[in-house]
Amino acid sequence: MAPKMNVHQKKQLIRILCALCLAIVIQYFFKTQEFYWMAATTIIVMLTRRGNALYQGLIHFFILITVVGIATAIFQNHLVLYDRAEAIVVGAIIGIAVNLIILPDHFDAEFREIVMSLLDTYDEYFQHIVLCMLDQNRQLAEKTQIKVEKGLLTLPSFILDPSFDIAMRKGHQYFTSRMVQLSEILFSLHHVACYPYDQNLIDSIRQPLEECSIKIHAFVIALKTVLDLKQLPGKVDDFYGEISKIAEEFKHAIPLELEALDLEKQFIFFGIFLRNLKEFHDNLLLLAKTLR
């Protein structure tokens, strides 16, 4: 059975075929020597991973011309070297140009789309986690959890490969790791939000938690606007004040003796919730700082 090709591989195949056709046309009109070297170079500079095609193509070209140049200079005469170098340069120009012009990969835009849709899902998941905690409405959070899982599956794993485009690696890896950390925090929040807390404790934190969820929604929308390369309409409020209010309410609710704190499971669970909320805030802020 023939292996299935993904969209990127299909695009790459079309580009290579187009580049080879172009190389044949050039050969027909200009009758260059060393055609096979030209065709081979065209293919080699086009075999790039997803990312910056120009950068990767140039790296392939420089490696090839250095190796071939040294080998030809040692084993053959200078005339062959000139002809071969000419063919390699023409082949590289064809390959890189076709890679950039015909069906180019816009990996940056694709990645931004993935991050934006994931942020959207995270926001929805957080709102439903808050509902789960305040009203014990678990169904919505469970449904959104599946959405988050599906969204995480769209994150490309090759970003973490050491062979991924050096120019893009750092930024993309940073974003991927932040998104993964945010998802794990949300799963943890979901796990502690389902605990049956004391109603008095829930009532005391209801208002700041609802405000916090509204502000997180606004914050995520702002992040998405920046990722969409659009101008922010106005300032975005930080939601640390709301988290501090929740923390204060928690401090009022916890027993004074530490032994009692150890015994009361709900306080440890709430402590985990609060910690996760702070980390969620910190991670969103770090994302915002990177985009600034």
Partner: peptide, 8 residues
């Protein structure tokens, strides 16, 4: 969920 929470 608990495994993710544990390994934070």
């Amino acid at each position: 969920e608990t495994i993710f929470s544990l390994h934070l």
